[in-house]
Each structure stands twice: as structure tokens, then as C-alpha cells.
Amino acid sequence: MTGERPLALVLLEMTLLVLAGPLVTGAIQKMKARLQCRQGAGVLQPYRDLTKLFRKGTVQADTASGLFRSIPVLVVAATVAAGAFVPVVRAGPPAFPLGDALMLLGLLALARFLTAVGALDAGGAFGGMGASREMTIAPLVEPVLMMVVFSTAIAAGTTELGALAAHRGTSWLLAWSAADFLGFAAMLLLLPAETGRIPVDNPDTHLELTMLHEGMLLEHSGPGLGCMVLASHTRQIVIVAVASALFFPVGPAGAGVVGVLVGAGAFAGKILALAIYLALVESSYAKLRLFRVPQYLGVGFVCALTALALRIL
């Protein structure tokens, strides 16, 4: 069991996640481009996009309420705060309790709630369509994700992600039980849905018939849009980090700066593995019709429920 993480480390890890978020998106885009035999933009492109957005002026819909301006701020704050609850460089619970997996999912849900509310504010049909579809998929994804968390939480006796990762220890596939495999399968099914990727959503499109998340961002511009984009990068890396905390073994624990660096390296490796998975899925499948998505998530639900059942039987 790894020791506790002091508050400074928790905040450092959170900052690290936010800073690395766009890099993951850039890496996935690059890998997709290579898989499609294109050169593609550099992995640092998302950073360039963000700085450009934060330099721009804003155009706001004249029908939007006063709430509209604060939506991006609240969304990015909630998403980044969720990043404080995942262990990055070291496993183990934080020295002072902060939040657990349920709190993390709650904050991501809060961000999504506010995004959808913002989408309805401008009064265009695209925003409404995006919000409606997002809020159709979300209630179906969230319970499955919670059940995946529960299936590991019941074994570990806690829903705190740092402690969950510590409980996983350094055990790798050979030490997994059937419940772990099923839970991991459900997690792999959910990852594209939660990160807004094919086959559930398509991050590269602005066609009204195909988009979910992008539709909700249409009316944001300039720094506001920058906040929203940063929030979706952060959300992606947080979800991937949750998956790695739940199922991947923690890196070798060490003290001091060396330990932190080794932990960060191990973390980067885990995130890269899952990013490759996402890029492969995006390149090899087509987007599902909206009303086929519940069936897709149904498979994940069955996996997660079976994983939970195996834990308690």
C-alpha cells in the first residue's frame, strides 16, 4: 500500500492533468492521421488552437442571458476540479479527504449539465439538438460507468480513487479475476462515449446530423470557446486517468523528485496505451446512428452488471 498524498501533490497532479490534456488530444489526432495515411497536424496543435482562441474577441448571441458568459468558466472549473480526485504520479488516498469517484462523476455531470444549459441559451436549433442528444446519451452512460467503479469499489472497500489504485497495487493481468476482465471490457466500451468519440460522437464534425458535443459549443466564441475546449481536453484525460487508476497497476513507488518523475512516466505510458486504443477505435469504426447507441451502451451495461454480480456472489 502506497502512502498518502499531501495536498500540494494533489494540486500539482491536477495542474499536470490540465496541462497534458491537449497533448492527449493532439496525440490521438496525429495517430488517426497516420492511420489514414495523412501527415496530420503536429501533436502540439491543440495548444496552438487554444492560445489562438484566448487571443480572440467574442461574439455573443443577442438573445442569450447573463448566464451565458459564466457557463464556460463554471464548466472548466468543474472539469478541472474533477481532475483533483484521480491519482497521477502516486497511488493512495490524499492526506486530507477531497472527493471520491462519485464526486468526480458528479462534477463531470455538473459540467455537462451546465454545457447543455448554455447550449439552450442562444436559442438556436443546433444548440438544442446537441443538448438534447447529449442529455439522452449521458443518463445511459453514467450508470454504467458508476457500476464499473462499484465493481472495483466492492472489492477494495472504498470509492476513493487513490485508495482504489493502491488496492490494485502492482498486480497485472495474471492476478485479475473474471470481474476485472468484464469491468475492463465495460470501461473500454464506455471510453469513446465519455470522451465524445466515434462510434458515439464525432469530435471532428460540424454536421448537424452527426454531432453531439460540438453542437453545444457552436454559440461560444473566443476565450469562452477556449474554456469549453480546454474543458473537453481535460475531461478526456480525466476519464482516461480514471480508467488507468481502476484497472492498470500503479508504477513503482519512490520518494522525492525521482519518485514523482517515475510515477509521471508510468502514468504517461498508461495514458498513451489508452490513447492508442481510442485512435484505433476511431479509425476502424463508423459512427453509430443515435438510436443504436443505447444498444451499444447496453452491452457495456451487461458487462458491468455481470462484473458486479461476480463480485458479490
Binding site: 443577442d62 472527493g99 464526486m103 462534477l107 469562452g224
Partner: peptide, 29 residues
Amino acid sequence: VAALLLSLTAIAWILRRGLQPALHRAAPT
């Protein structure tokens, strides 16, 4: 968590104002 959320909101609020003074205008949807 509420304190964390509040301080992150304050930071994001500064970020929201942009890196340089730029034009803000209203337009129809």
C-alpha cells in the same frame, strides 16, 4: 471541494477575459 471549485472558478474567470483586450459584440444567432 466547494472551496476548490470556487478558486478554480476565479482562475477561469481571469482566463475567460482573454490574453489581450479584444472586441466583444452581440449578434443574432
